[in-house]
Design a protein around this nucleic acid. Structure first.
Lengths: 131, 131
DNA sequence: GTGGGTACTTTCCAATAGTTAGCGCTCTCC
DNA sequence: GGAGAGCGCTAACTATTGGAAAGTACCCAC
């Protein structure tokens, strides 16, 4: 973390390349395996818990709950629990979350576009090693 | 994975929300803990192995080597090993890798900007739970 | 009253990530 | 000339994390 002096205050500029910088873990939260997919899904519209679980293929309930809690604590996701029977909990993006979601959403779309190119690169790589 | 028919060929459109879709693992590679930081660093300029290791705080040699291999196989990173003593290996981005890197780079910068807002959200969340 | 749906939490095991050590070679330091 | 550091890995071991399954507590439809 680089340290600048501004007046008498010490100001440390966030740097994801610093293992100790808090920005590192924030980046890890938004780029986490399920975090990316949750943010991208919520960009579309608010979701309920089970709805989100069905929408994102392969998430366990544990990881969905855990990741949503992390994103809520970081201020990306808003949780609205209605005390009704059966329980109803709606998840949506905050303003901050929307900014993050837009970026990971476009990354997801880009990935879907480029998956063929990646697979071609992989077979080329594998063939070069086998022969 | 949604399936469209085009002529006689079946065409499956990539979907990161499908657990079985190859695009899912590609997205995981570029958003992986070290993948993000490696791509962002290489956007700046090519790096040598140990140079990259010093630049990215906290990477082990194993994880750096492993992640670089994954990114190389996926066609994001170009590896140029010069057969000299001491060994010299230069890593740089391919055209495909540059596209990915630009996105994760801006995500990293965004995160650094917003880290204060996230920390404020966290203390608010924690205080609401403690009291 | 059995089965299903809600939103989780808990427990346990497998997979994954990280830590440590080593390798073969060379260059610098003293 | 012997010691130590640097290079780019790899293999073996261990700590951490992720996932699968079951539990919880409540209600409704059949």
């Amino acid at each position: 973390m680089s340290v600048r002096k501004v007046g008498v205050r010490k100001v440390t500029k966030p740097d994801v390349n610093d293992a100790m910088c808090p920005s590192r873990v924030v980046l890890e939260h938004v780029t986490s395996r399920w975090g990316v997919l949750i943010l991208a899904a919520l960009l579309e519209r608010p979701y309920r818990f089970s709805e989100l679980r069905r929408s994102i293929g392969g998430v366990s309930e544990k990881m969905l709950a855990q990741t949503l809690q992390t994103l809520e604590r970081d201020g990306f996701v808003h949780r609205d629990a209605k005390p009704v029977i059966p329980p109803r909990v709606d998840y949506s993006l905050t303003a901050l979350g929307k900014e993050a979601a837009e970026q990971v959403w476009s990354l997801a779309r880009w990935t879907e576009e480029k998956v063929d190119a990646v697979q071609r690169a992989r077979t080329a790589y594998d063939e070069a090693r086998n022969s």
